[in-house]
């Protein structure tokens, strides 16, 4: 059985290098047959694509897509640099 660290690294590389996603900085954790994705992306479709690529790369694992979509809230208070 392959060490989970190598599987997690392969999934992370796939998320960065797959033409559908090209997403860096997504955390991938594996516990038993469960795979967890965490991070932030700019849109809901990107989150779905990341889940798909992770599933294709590690089809035997159950993927939990915990990635959040970045909320672009209204600008808050200005910062004065004096």
């Amino acid at each position: 059985m392959e060490a989970p660290q190598y599987v997690a690294a392969r999934v992370q590389q796939a998320l960065a290098e797959d033409g559908r996603t090209h997403e860096l900085g997504i955390r991938v954790d594996i516990r038993g047959d469960q795979l967890f994705l965490r991070g932030q992306v700019s849109g809901a479709q990107q989150r779905l694509r990341l889940g798909e690529v992770a599933h294709e790369t590690a089809p035997d694992l159950h993927v939990h897509n915990e990635i959040k979509v970045v909320e672009a809230h209204e600008p808050g208070e200005d910062e004065h640099l004096d």
């Binding site: 932030q40 970045v70 672009a72 809230h73 808050g76 200005d78 910062e79 640099l81 004096d82």
Partner: peptide, 21 residues
């Protein structure tokens, strides 16, 4: 010199505003 990381996931908003006096 002041440095600001303005990556949108860090700011959590559409943009930040910095005022230089």
């Amino acid at each position: 010199i002041r440095v600001r990381n303005v990556a949108m996931p860090v700011l959590g908003k559409a943009y930040a505003v910095y005022c230089l006096t």
